[in-house]
Structure formats: structure tokens, C-alpha cells
Amino acid sequence: MLSPQTPWGYPSMLAVVLWGVSAFLPKLALRQLPPLHMTVYSNCFFLLGCVALQAFYGFHVEFNARGVMLAGLVGVSGGTAQLFYNLSLRNNSLTYNVVIASLYPVVATLMAYLFLGETLGARQAAGVALGIVSLLMMVKTSDRKTEGP
């Protein structure tokens, strides 16, 4: 299974740690900045990062009207999701938020099932069911005692 000896082991583990820390930092930034401002800054930094990434690819940006519209919608949904997440982070604990947010593959899987006609195997169906149970448990048992000091 996971071992640094495998060629994908180190990059995978590094991605886990980097994404983990990057999801933790906004909670600290909330002490200094309002959620809306945080979302604006994050999106600006993301935009700059993506432009830098294009430089790496020699600025060979493709253009396809349908693809651009869909990619733009990806950004709109991601930006709005981030805003809601930051607003929620102000009043809820980081753990509560991150557990709920981590279940987005359930929504994506259900959308692929409904709109693309992708079939759900037993494993995926069990994942969706467990995700929904987990979500309900998290929300129903939220007693606002999860905040840190």
C-alpha cells in the first residue's frame, strides 16, 4: 500500500500534508480578516498562482467556448462555496466544517449518476449511503460545544 518507496508515495503524502495545512490556515486568518475579504484574497492569490502555472506551460491556453463556460462555472461554484465555508467557519469549529466539506464527493457522485447516467457500483453506493449517514449525524449531534477555547 502506501510507502515512500513507491514513486507516487512521497508526492501523495506531501499533497495530504499541504492540503491539510492549507485548509487549517483560514481558521487562523479569520482572527484578522472578515470571511468576505478572506475569500477575495484567496481568489486573487489563486488567480495569480494559475497565471504563474500558465507561464510554466508556455501560455498555451486553449479556447473552446463550451469548455470556457464550464470552467468559468467551476470557478463560480468554487468561489461561492469558499465564501459560504468561510462564513460558516466564523461560527462553527474547523473540524465540524471540514468533515462536512470532505463529503463533496458524495454530491459529485450523485450528480454524475443523475446527469451523466454513470452507474453506481456496490462500493460507490455504500460510500454515498455512509456519507449521508455521516452528514446527518454531524448536523444532528452538533451542540455548538465543538468550538475551541
Binding site: 477575495v40 481568489n43 497565471v51 470557478g75 468561489g79
Partner: peptide
């Protein structure tokens, strides 16, 4: 289906900015 991942990321970043900046 119509573009490479790095191009999608590029347009995605503009979409995100378009969604958030008007709120300012």
C-alpha cells in the same frame, strides 16, 4: 471533454474572481 486540466484551472480562477469580486 474539450480542454486540458491546466487550461480549465486558468479559466476556473477567472470564474472564481468573477463570483467574488462583485461582492466588494
Amino acid at each position: 471533454q474539450s480542454m486540458q486540466p491546466h487550461s480549465i484551472l486558468f479559466y476556473e480562477s477567472f470564474g472564481g474572481a468573477m463570483a467574488v469580486l462583485p461582492l466588494l
